[in-house]
Design a protein around this nucleic acid. Structure first.
Length: 412
DNA sequence: CCTCCACCGGAAAGCCGGGTCA
DNA sequence: TGACCCGGCTTTCCGGTGGAGG
């Protein structure tokens, strides 16, 4: 065929996405479907900011992908817009505490944003605090500080929250109010009661989206993200249904849609179908597991590897004891320290919690009570991930032979 | 109905690296 | 700087247990 005009080829390839960034979580859309109630609630709490009063602090809860961050950013943007028109000094500063995760960094970052020159390390904390106070108080303004993933901050002590929550009493001209966002309801328990009561003057809960709501969200984004007609009908409801089954996680739904599109694109398909979505689900699961396995501690990796060894010798179910015997012999072969069975048992339950393996405690009557372990993961992928670790390089030498010699006969 | 297997899983103490404070 | 503390990981010890087989 001579239809090999290079531009035509590229154009064809481009035919799926109009703008794929719309499907990323960093994107804040023009309007947020099904969050009217929360938007209005936040807006009415922040309203006093426009008339020079201090808005109440807000604590926001909700699982991942329920639109907390997007909503807050959205309302914040609108507030800044109006205040500019009204000639009021009112600013919203957003911090993600997963990245900025210590008292010092929070204060320093804020001070920097407000135009102070504070080094990111080195100063005593209270000096930074004073600088920050100074920066805030230099004119009549309202500063709203958004602390996303605030639970991450609390784990390392709640001094910042304590300081920030009473900063108002030390200011003459300016006002500060806080918005904390968390997906962990339990984090309140770790908080000093005084901080908690000041922080949670208002509480707003973001419920998970249901399938129909997710569908609306996806439709809205898909219109911007995809060229017309590339989505097979049923793709969006399918993605929505899958995500709704989990936690009503919009982030997941969007990921699903984007990855489906990417898969279709990479195969030069013109239309995204349900099949692509199914493929995307598989890919996401696989990526998730690979990631989890990569970050596993060494001992857990070796335990998992022992299970894979058993699996490859044809076994589909195994007990703690069997895994332990194989594990011990592998430890000896590669000269790793051998943990006790008690500990290994704990590590096995950890693997179970992570969803890498499936285990249940069953009783086999006379033959004891034990955990029955099953692997339902892409074994060869996981195996490669483990062997990729340089510390397990030497395991490759035993490939295929590890069970025939010493360990297998142990449980004959 | 009792036994007894092969492990479960709680409690507590030890070890270790890192951080804090006088 | 050394005494001390903290939290995570691991070991030790041990009581507990569902159900096949007698």
């Amino acid at each position: 065929m001579i239809d090999s005009n290079i531009f035509e080829k590229i154009l064809k390839k481009r035919s799926i996405f109009k703008n794929r960034d719309v499907l990323r979580h960093s994107y804040t859309p023009e309007y947020l479907p099904h969050r009217k109630e929360q938007i209005e609630a936040i807006a009415s709490i922040l309203l006093p900011a426009l008339s020079g009063e201090t808005p109440s602090n807000i604590l926001i809860y909700g699982k991942t992908g329920t639109g907390k961050t997007a909503t807050v950013k959205f309302v914040g943007k609108q507030l800044e817009e109006v205040s500019r028109k009204m000639n009021v000094h009112c600013y919203v500063h957003y911090l993600n505490c997963e990245i900025i995760d210590t008292q010092y960094r929070v204060l320093a970052t804020l001070a920097k944003v407000l135009g102070k020159n504070v080094p990111m390390t080195g100063w005593p904390t209270d000096q930074v605090y004073d600088e920050l106070k100074d920066a805030i108080d230099k004119r009549n303004q309202t500063i709203i500080i958004v602390l996303d993933e605030i639970d991450k901050l609390v784990r390392k002590g709640d001094d910042v929250l304590y300081n920030l929550s009473r900063i108002n009493s030390e200011l003459k001209n300016a006002r500060v109010s806080l918005i904390g966002i968390s997906n962990d309801l339990k984090f309140k328990n770790f908080l000093d009661p005084r901080v908690l009561s000041s922080l949670s003057e208002e509480e707003i809960i973001f419920p998970p989206y249901n399938a129909t709501q997710l569908e609306d969200i996806l439709n809205q984004r898909a219109e911007l993200a995809f060229h017309e007609g590339v989505l097979d009908e049923g793709v969006i409801p399918y993605c929505a249904a899958l995500a709704a089954q989990e936690h009503g996680d919009a982030r997941k739904a969007l990921d699903l849609l984007r990855i489906s599109g990417e898969i279709a694109e990479s195969r030069d398909d013109r239309v995204v179908t349900k099949e692509h979505v199914k493929e995307a689900v598989r890919k996401m699961e696989c990526d998730h597991i690979t990631e989890a396995v990569k970050t596993l501690p060494n001992q857990s990796k070796l335990i998992l590897y022992s299970m894979i060894a058993l699996y490859e010798s044809g076994r589909r179910k195994f007990t703690t004891g069997e895994v332990y015997t194989v594990y011990k012999s592998l430890c000896r072969k590669i000269g790793m320290e051998i943990l006790t069975q008690r500990r290994v048992s704990d590590l096995i339950s950890e693997l179970d919690m992570l969803g890498i393996i499936n285990s249940i405690v069953i009783s086999k009557g006379r033959y004891g009570r034990t955990r029955e372990i099953k692997l339902d993961i892409p074994v060869d992928v996981v195996k490669e991930v483990i062997l990729d670790d340089y510390r397990f390089e030497m395991l490759r030498r035993y490939e295929g032979g590890y069970l025939t010699n010493s360990s297998l006969e142990l449980f004959e």
